[in-house]
């Protein structure tokens, strides 16, 4: 167990290192003098000198990287050249919003997908099953930028159930915050429901055909007990893996809904920064999101060791 996690931890560090190198090199994708590009209209000789010093741009490349990495590890990602806010501050106000969106959507997705799969997998190809399977197949073709506008048109503009834009922090008014988050969360939930349902259903169906389920039946256990205590766990491995893979799609989804509903999360800040050529903000958010993504994958690997005893003991 410890050995397995250690190995994964080393992998995590290596990948994080490679990510940091690539993100660092982004600045050098800019044509011409990076400092001039980054400063844009605010360009003065003094500013440029400050930035060159801050980024260490006059040093050799690998030296620059060490310099930059040191800053990053000390929590210094540079500052926005528009309003001089530190990038870390942009990130620290943004990430809780993304997390909230992702958590709400995932809770809903699992709460819908798992019970539905438990019901339909017991009797495959009945009407309920056929309807769910067809509906989720359709939902696979509804990425957030397609379904969110439809939802806004129907529930915000048409029915006035929810505001079309706007954001009130959770700390300020939890009830309003949650109410306003419903529509954005639902918009990124559709894909997750479809993926989780389809995967869990087909895995349950194959698990229920396993010998050990027949064995459990031959012990006289009730169908419900067999479903929960014998079939559920062995069927959940791909579900867990899918949840990990799905984080990528969710990040894209939060960017879409933050942009659409003007919710000031990381995605909103990122898109604004790109449009305003605020390069250090783009670089900082990219680094943080990419590393967070890798860490989440690591956590999911850890969950695997909890769910499947074979992972670490074999």
């Amino acid at each position: 167990m410890a050995k397995y996690l250690l190995r994964r931890l080393i992998q995590l560090v290596v990948v994080a290192f490679i990510i940091s190198v690539l993100v660092f090199l982004l600045v050098h994708l800019l044509p011409g003098d990076p400092a001039a590009q980054i400063l844009g209209a605010n360009d003065t000789a003094h500013n440029r000198a400050v930035l060159n010093k801050q980024l260490g741009l006059n040093l050799p490349l690998w030296h620059q990287y060490i310099f930059w990495l040191k800053g990053v590890l000390h929590g210094n990602l540079g500052q926005s050249y528009l309003n001089h806010t530190p990038v870390t501050q942009v990130i620290s106000t943004g990430w809780p919003i993304d997390l909230e969106l992702i958590i709400i959507s995932q809770v809903i997705a699992f709460a819908v997908a798992i019970p539905l799969a438990l019901i339909t997998s017991r009797r495959p190809n009945r009407p309920v099953d056929n309807i769910s399977t067809t509906a989720t197949f359709g939902m696979l073709a509804l990425p957030p930028f397609v379904i969110a506008p439809i939802m806004v048109a129907v529930f915000a503009v048409g029915l006035h159930w929810f505001p079309a834009t706007g954001y009130i922090p959770f700390t300020q008014n939890p009830a309003t915050n949650l109410h306003d988050m419903i529509l954005p969360s639902l918009a990124i939930t559709a894909g997750s429901i479809a993926v989780y349902y389809r995967l869990f259903r087909s895995d349950l169906i194959s698990t229920l055909q396993e010998d050990f389920v027949t064995m459990a039946r031959s012990k006289g256990l009730s169908p419900r007990w067999i479903m929960w205590r014998h079939a559920f766990r062995p069927s959940s491995f791909s579900l867990l893996a899918a949840a990990g893979v799905n984080i990528g799609a969710l990040i894209a989804g939060t960017f879409i809904v933050e942009f659409l509903f003007a919710i000031p999360g990381l995605g909103y800040s990122l898109v604004q920064a790109v449009n305003q050529r605020d390069y250090l903000v783009v670089q900082g958010i990219t680094l943080v999101v990419a590393v967070a993504y890798v860490v989440i994958q690591f956590l999911i690997d850890f969950l695997f060791t909890v769910v499947d005893p074979r992972v670490t003991r074999e």
Binding site: F212, K219, G220, P234
Partner: peptide
């Protein structure tokens, strides 16, 4: 009623214990 008989009065040994035992229990 069958479930009262299965396992209690009438039980079964399967061919392949690798597949007939639940791998994660």
């Amino acid at each position: 009623q069958l479930r009262q008989v299965w396992g209690a009065e009438l039980s079964m040994i399967f061919q392949d214990p690798m597949t007939a035992l639940n791998p994660v229990k």
